[in-house]
Computed example of a mutant assay.
Amino acid sequence: MTNPLVPGGVSAAQAEPSLIHAAESGDNTKVENAIASDAKIDARDAQGRTALLAATHANQVKTARLLIDAGADVNAKDEIEDSPYLYAGARGYLEILKMTLAHGADLAATNRYGGTALIPAAERGHVDTVQTLIKAGVDIDHVNKLGWTALLEAIILSDGGPRHVEVVKLLLDAGGDVNLADKDGVTPLQHARQRGYDDIARLLEKAGAR
Results as ranks from 00 to 15, higher is better:
70 A>D: 13
202 R>S: 15
170 L>Q: 14
171 L>Q: 05
28 N>H: 07
77 K>I: 08
147 G>I: 13
63 T>V: 14
109 A>P: 04
75 N>I: 04
63 T>L: 12
100 T>W: 01
12 A>I: 14
8 G>Q: 07
151 L>E: 00
189 L>D: 00
183 K>V: 10
206 K>Y: 04
167 V>N: 00
159 D>C: 05
163 R>W: 01
130 V>P: 02
50 T>V: 02
78 D>A: 02
36 A>N: 09
107 L>N: 01
207 A>L: 07
100 T>Y: 04
51 A>Y: 09
5 L>M: 12
22 A>M: 01
124 R>N: 15
112 R>A: 12
155 I>V: 04
187 T>C: 05
49 R>V: 11
154 A>V: 03
29 T>V: 10
192 A>D: 02
177 D>T: 02
61 V>I: 10
175 G>T: 09
85 Y>I: 00
18 S>T: 15
58 A>M: 08
133 L>F: 13
84 P>R: 02
146 L>Q: 15
181 A>W: 01
50 T>P: 00
173 D>E: 15
185 G>Y: 12
4 P>E: 13
104 G>N: 06
208 G>A: 09
65 R>S: 14
82 D>R: 08
142 H>D: 09
3 N>Y: 11
202 R>M: 15
86 L>K: 03
1 M>D: 11
102 A>S: 09
123 E>H: 10
24 E>C: 01
178 V>T: 05
201 A>F: 09
191 H>I: 08
185 G>D: 11
92 G>Y: 05
151 L>Q: 00
28 N>A: 06
69 D>C: 10
17 P>M: 14
3 N>T: 14
54 A>F: 09
104 G>A: 05
138 V>C: 09
160 G>F: 06
200 I>D: 06
133 L>E: 04
73 D>V: 08
189 L>P: 00
99 M>A: 08
41 I>S: 06
164 H>D: 06
81 E>G: 00
73 D>H: 02
